[in-house]
Simulated scan of single mutants.
Amino acid sequence: MDFSDALRAIKAGHRLARAGWNGKGMFVFQVAGSRFRVNRPPLLGIYPEGTEITYQPHIDMKTADGSVVPWQPSQSDMAAEDWEIVA
């Protein structure tokens, strides 16, 4: 599928990966937005404790080593047509 279809699938709650990615077990997924009160670093130091903030929805990636990082598509990711839904 192309990136437009992949983005719709991510927003629908699916995990997606590119067939061309080398890392085993890598995928991207949407993190839902939320509201919460600040109670620990690193936000505690930017905002006073108890401040309610809005955490905006965004896309993260599970990397090959099991870490989770914020993800932004590259130009090649957006032009690719090898996107797949993963379990």
Rank of each mutant, 00 (worst) to 15 (best):
F27A: 01
R35D: 15
A32V: 07
S67P: 02
E81N: 08
M1N: 01
Q75V: 08
K11Q: 14
S4H: 12
I53K: 04
Q56S: 15
G66N: 13
L7H: 04
P48C: 06
A12I: 05
A64W: 13
I53S: 11
P73T: 02
P73I: 04
F27H: 10
I53W: 10
Q72G: 06
P73G: 05
G33I: 15
H14C: 11
R37D: 14
R15A: 15
G13H: 06
D5L: 07
P57F: 02
V31W: 00
E84P: 01
V31D: 05
W83K: 01
G45Q: 02
L44M: 11
K24N: 12
R37L: 14
D60Y: 12
I10F: 03
I10K: 08
H58P: 10
G66E: 14
R8L: 15
V86T: 05
H58W: 08
Q56P: 11
T63S: 08
Q56C: 11
S4G: 12
F29N: 03
P73C: 02
K11L: 15
A12T: 01
P41I: 10
N22F: 10
V31C: 14
L44T: 03
R40G: 10
M78D: 06
R8P: 09
S76K: 06
V68H: 13
Q75P: 07
R8C: 13
P41S: 13
V38D: 09
R35N: 14
E49A: 12
E81L: 02
E52P: 12
W71P: 00
V31E: 09
G13I: 09
S34W: 10
R40E: 15
V38S: 09
D77P: 02
F29A: 10
Q75M: 05
I85V: 14
A80G: 03
N39W: 11
A87V: 08
L16E: 03
P70M: 07
A6L: 01
G33C: 12
G13T: 07
A6S: 05
R18I: 01
R37E: 15
R18D: 05
K11M: 14
L44R: 01
D5Y: 06
S34Q: 10
D82T: 00
R40M: 13
P57H: 11
P73H: 04
I85W: 03
V28K: 02
G45A: 03
R18K: 09
M1T: 02
S76W: 05
L16Q: 00
F3L: 02
A64G: 10
L43D: 06
A17Q: 07
R15M: 13
Y55F: 12
G33A: 09
F27R: 01
E49R: 14
A12N: 11
A64Y: 12
M61A: 07
V38P: 09
G25P: 07
G20P: 02
P73N: 04
G50R: 05
D2K: 04
F3V: 04
V68S: 09
F27Q: 01
M1D: 02
I46G: 07
Q75F: 00
D60N: 14
D60T: 06
W71L: 02
M78P: 00
G20F: 08
V38W: 03
